[in-house]
């Protein structure tokens, strides 16, 4: 007995070794490194001192926490919008479309992801810019008498973010909605349920794991997005990841950048935790 269990343990260890190694080398160790860097302060060339200054900086300098708050609020908004737009699409794909229509619609959602994010974002820029297609069409239709600038504002960022995130919302939603027995909807209808009541009491509770995982993924992706907000947002769009990038790359301030990185990790986890608490969901339920 003893020997068998030792043998099994070894097998398990060997099987998991690549995963453990991967976690250790690429996730845990860099984060430990990052943490130690974030907890020091430069006092003279190549002389550092242990300090919480970099963390304090975030709370003391309104610029930084405002940037974070703005990024978080915009990300939440983008997540909610993606959900509101993605849900009917997913419902249509999962429950109403049949056969070829179903697969082609699904494919259509994936199409934007065959090109890189950069190209996708440039696509939007071509559409939205002052000398761009939409502006041209509006003028041609006589709906605008001069060029219309639709780029470089929060709405443009929102459009870009929702577009980029759509697939990550639709995939989990379609798969949970697919698993919803049509009979349940019909039964509820048969028992007197109205469309709205069925949506609220049958469809949404069933789709909840998909909604939660879709929202978490979209929220994290949006929060961590860099290209879309900087390119589409233009001059007023300070995004928190841009802040981190700036600290690391253009300011050589690794200490501050690491601290921001950790704060982003902690604060976004806190936001997700709060979101789960508010909607009375548990993370474990989404993984089944």
């Amino acid at each position: 007995m003893e020997r068998v269990s030792a043998g099994t343990k070894l097998t398990v260890l060997v099987l998991f070794a690549p995963f453990i190694l991967w976690m250790l080398l690429l996730v845990i160790l860099p984060h430990i490194d990052l943490l130690t860097i974030s907890l020091r302060e430069r006092v003279a060339p190549r002389v550092y001192e242990f300090s919480f200054k970099n963390y304090m900086e975030f709370f003391v300098e309104p610029l930084y926490w405002r940037t974070f708050a703005r990024t978080a609020i915009m990300s939440i908004l983008a997540t909610v919008l993606t959900l509101i737009i993605g849900f009917p699409i997913s419902y249509y794909i999962a429950k109403i479309a049949r056969g070829r229509l179903k697969s082609s619609l699904f494919l259509l959602c994936m199409l934007p992801f065959w090109v890189s994010e950069l190209v996708r974002t440039f696509g939007w820029m071509i559409l939205l810019r002052e000398s761009g297609i939409i502006s041209g069409v509006l003028q041609w239709l006589g709906l605008a008498d001069g060029p219309v600038e639709m780029l470089y504002n929060d709405a443009a960022i929102m459009v870009g973010l929702v577009y980029t995130s759509m697939l990550f919302m639709v995939v989990p939603l379609v798969s949970t909605l697919d698993s919803l027995d049509d009979g349940l909807i019909e039964a509820a209808y048969d028992l007197g349920g109205s469309t709205i009541a069925i949506l609220r009491e049958i469809v949404i509770p069933h789709a909840m794991p998909g909604i939660v995982s879709g929202c978490i993924v979209v929220f994290m992706l949006t929060l961590g997005n860099y290209l879309t907000p900087t390119l589409l947002g233009g001059k007023d769009s300070l995004w928190f990841t841009e802040q981190i990038y700036n600290q690391f790359i253009t300011r050589f301030n690794w200490e501050q950048g690491s601290a921001f990185g950790f704060l982003l990790l902690l604060l976004s986890s806190a936001i997700i935790w709060t979101g789960l608490r508010l909607t009375r969901q548990r993370l474990q339920d989404t993984i089944k």
């Binding site: 610029l63 001059k235 007023d236 769009s237 300070l238 700036n246 600290q247 300011r251 301030n253």
Partner: peptide
Amino acid sequence: AGLEEMEGKVLDRIKAAKS
């Protein structure tokens, strides 16, 4: 040394300000 950090904050504040 140190100037870039000062400049960085100024640039951030400019970017974050509303036009």
